[in-house]
């Protein structure tokens, strides 16, 4: 019932969004988004996913019939308050810099006994196929709501990952000569009507990073940061990097480091 209502609302907002540009100035479109946000102020569809994620977190699952409650997201086993905000970080047990998604998969494999290819098969949802990872990440993200992003990248492995992310950010290739920097390296630019922040500044990176994971109205689904970045690479006309690839984690480290100090507002709602 609630789901149905939200769907209708989302449908109306989406129709409004896409009819907008044909008739009206772009300010109208921003108005539509603002209205949409208002309509959902206490009912982001992501909230339902968050509840689902909470259930998945504490449910005994997998070959080992264990919950994820002992999973260490970087602040100690089971400590989730503020955990998302301090990721990616270096983990001693794997000797790797890990983001929220790679760490979650690690826990599902080590604690619950799933096979990596099993848990990552539906790493993002498709119409008719839900994604446990999306739900869990939404739940874990929400536990950092109101917490400051804190990725100073002081551990040498983290500092190195941030630098490598910076390298990838400026790296151009492909038939459109794109790099992240072309779309996200300047203040106040738009591609078509989509506003693009400057991800190389604290304000710009903070404004973007604080809202993820986010419910995407145009997609009717919550997207994780891995999904967001992999799609940007698709837009750049590059091949898709593998889910959880180090280069994505490097970009996340670079962006979270730049955004450090910004208060999280997640789950967000985006176009």
């Amino acid at each position: 019932m609630i789901q149905g209502l939200i769907k209708t609302l989302a449908g109306a907002a989406v129709a409004g969004l896409f009819a907008g540009p044909l008739l009206a100035q772009d300010s109208k479109v921003s108005d539509e988004i603002a209205k949409y946000r208002e309509a959902l102020a206490d009912g982001n569809p992501a909230d339902l996913l968050e509840v689902k994620g909470e259930g998945l977190w504490s449910e005994k699952r997998g070959p080992k019939n264990t919950s994820l409650e002992q999973c260490d997201m970087g602040l100690g086993p089971g400590k989730l308050e503020g955990a998302y905000a301090q990721l990616p970080k270096y983990f001693k047990d794997t000797n790797k810099v890990m983001d929220v998604e790679s760490r979650l998969v690690h826990c599902m494999v080590t604690l619950q006994g799933f096979k990596p290819e099993e848990v990552t098969r539906n790493w993002y949802s498709k119409p008719g196929t839900e994604s446990d990872i999306e739900a869990l990440v939404t739940f874990i993200g929400a536990k950092s709501n109101g917490v400051k992003i804190n990725v100073p990248a002081t551990h040498p492995a983290e500092a190195k990952m941030a630098k490598m992310g910076e390298y990838i950010f400026y790296r151009r290739s492909g038939p459109q000569d794109f790099s992240c920097s072309i779309c996200h390296g300047q203040e106040g630019k738009r591609i078509r009507l989509q506003e693009l922040g400057n991800l190389t500044t604290k304000d710009g990176a903070g404004f973007a990073m604080k809202t993820w994971p986010s419910y995407r109205v145009s997609q009717g689904a919550v997207w994780t940061m891995q999904r967001r970045l992999i799609d940007c690479m698709r837009q750049a006309r590059w091949p898709e990097p593998n889910y959880l690839a180090d280069s994505i984690i490097a970009l996340e480290t670079y962006l979270q480091k730049t955004a450090t100090g910004t208060v999280m507002e997640t789950p967000g709602i985006k176009r």
Binding site: K163, M164, Y167, I168, R171, P239, E240, P241, N242, A245, D246, S247, I248, A250
Partner: peptide
């Protein structure tokens, strides 16, 4: 970083 990036694809 270049090597890492290249190793990120199937």
């Amino acid at each position: 970083a270049e090597q890492m990036f290249r190793a990120s694809f199937r």
